[in-house]
Simulated scan of single mutants.
Amino acid sequence: MFSWFKKKDKTPPPPSSPEILGLRLGGAFELDSLKLRLIEPQLIIEGAAETQLIKAVGEVHLDHQTRLLRFYTDDDGFIQVLIHGSSEADISEVKLYYFYESRPIDTETQWKKILDHDIVQPFWTLEEHRFEKVWDNIKPVAMTEKTWFQDGTISETDQFVMVYDRDCGEGQMESLLIAGEEKFIEQRPERCLAISTGFDLSSTDFKLIG
């Protein structure tokens, strides 16, 4: 009869999303406007916003100590941080990518062809620019990304990836990220080929504002 006095079992809170370099879910940063004006004419991207809000955070474990952290923004892009350890001293690369195109994949035959033949090629051409293959593998790199959203939901997406680079001149490089993405919703796969282009960021190229 006194059961209402019993302590209720508390559900542990969901794990918090990763943070690094001050970048966090719900945060904001500002890009260096002078750098943007100087490099945009050499790149495929156009009209990058100086101020960007972080709407989602993704994490990929590549091996027992190497991770990719991705901070997705309201400007159709994401900052990607490659880290080989647990501290900021272990960061080896920071890039800002922008989504170029997402092509839906409707059939199993299309999906198999993309994985077996389309993602990994000696080079990719985009807007008449030639991007050279970066990695030596002949099959896409398989990875799973866990993503935290501002509304508290968490999802997982399987990705099959290859990276390409091109020299834009004057010391500027541009990267091309090709990813076959697969997510299961109610046991049904949703698939697409995601194409993104990006460039390197240094610690002085952006500042936190939230």
Rank of each mutant, 00 (worst) to 15 (best):
A56I: 03
F184I: 00
Y98Q: 11
H117M: 03
P12A: 14
K10V: 15
P13M: 02
F184T: 01
K112F: 01
S3V: 12
L38S: 12
E40H: 12
E170M: 09
D116I: 01
W111Q: 06
I79Y: 14
K113I: 05
K8L: 15
F160Y: 14
K35Q: 11
R37H: 12
S3I: 10
G171K: 05
D116G: 00
L21F: 08
L126N: 02
F184S: 05
K113C: 02
R24W: 05
I54T: 08
W135L: 12
T204V: 13
D9C: 07
F5T: 08
P104L: 08
S203W: 10
S102V: 03
G47S: 12
M162R: 11
S175E: 11
G26H: 04
W135Q: 15
E59C: 09
V120M: 03
L62N: 06
L176R: 09
V60W: 01
G22C: 08
F2R: 11
E128T: 13
C192S: 14
G169R: 13
I45T: 13
C192Q: 10
P140G: 02
S92T: 06
K95R: 14
L38M: 11
I195G: 04
G85E: 08
D90F: 06
W4L: 05
F5Q: 09
V134M: 13
D106W: 09
E88F: 04
Y72Q: 02
P15V: 14
